[in-house]
Design a protein around this nucleic acid. Sequence first.
DNA 1: GGCCCTTGTTTTCATTCAGAACTATCTCCC
DNA 2: GGGAGATAGTTCTGAATGAAAACAAGGGCC
Lengths: 168, 168
Amino acid sequence: MKTRAKETALPDTAADAFQLEDFLPYRLAVASAHVSRLFTRNYAENFGLTIPEWRVLAVVGRFQTLSPSAAGEWTAMDKVKVSRASASLVSRGLLRQSQDPSDGRGRLLRLTRKGAALHAQVVPEALALEATLADGLSRAEWVSLNKALAKLNTHCAAIAATGEDDEE
Amino acid sequence: MKTRAKETALPDTAADAFQLEDFLPYRLAVASAHVSRLFTRNYAENFGLTIPEWRVLAVVGRFQTLSPSAAGEWTAMDKVKVSRASASLVSRGLLRQSQDPSDGRGRLLRLTRKGAALHAQVVPEALALEATLADGLSRAEWVSLNKALAKLNTHCAAIAATGEDDEE
DNA sequence: GGCCCTTGTTTTCATTCAGAACTATCTCCC
DNA sequence: GGGAGATAGTTCTGAATGAAAACAAGGGCC
């Protein structure tokens, strides 16, 4: 455009006009990083929890009893991450892990009394932080953001699935 | 106390009902991780670029000449990340770094011919991948997602700013 | 019983990140 | 003009994260 004559005369005007800040993956990554940092700090400072630990706590608190693999599905974490997070929670007396009586390989996760108390304390806090975020948007925007993200997630999962098939 | 009653008005009932998958920070983190992985793979396999490198490339390509600190602002990265990314780009002959004649501390980033060629090649690819993501949503959903994320970003920045003031 | 699958834990190695230290330069102000 | 302090960038450090594979222990099916 302006200095086009100086350097290359390539037909890449589209590339020159590219604005990173309007690029959805960028926006998404930045938003997620912002929000994650907000939550990480809050969980770490007030409860000594990492995000994986918080997720396991949340999902076990919801289902009372859960296998690690089921926890992994609900929290979108792989088994390694679930294993580490629950080991940490167990070591702090927040979670109890027992054998699955119906399957020798399986384990069952369950909150201790202490873990349940923490859960009851953390959830409202998380919702409050979420509400703080929601304050920046109108109700309609908030709802549509949630819907769009949910849809994007399923769409990404679909893309990733087809990608795996193609590879190799 | 498993499912003692369907609904009691106690605070911990709210905690029991908490669904991680409807929690916006969770949705956002999962979506961002999905999308980031998609792009990371693509950039790495096809162009040998990491995401920070791609961001620097994009923003320098747009402004022709840019200081590292300005690049950091445009890419939402700290100076350390910019420094590493540009060092890597320089070492591969994609970027040139020179002294700022008006300030001995400052540097100026600028694409080499090779870097400009890569830029012209990567941007359409990125837009194509973005379009693939957009395919999963209606046009209106896509637009509102973008708007909502932009708004969320500015709101987060505001929250973080006030947080910093309070601390210590 | 033998073979292969699944569940879950642990290890390893490379990458990543936040924080702080460090170099060099500029600006302000005495 | 010369220090104190701020700023631009780079480098270093230790912790966290990730992917991938090794490993242990059971289960299911022939």
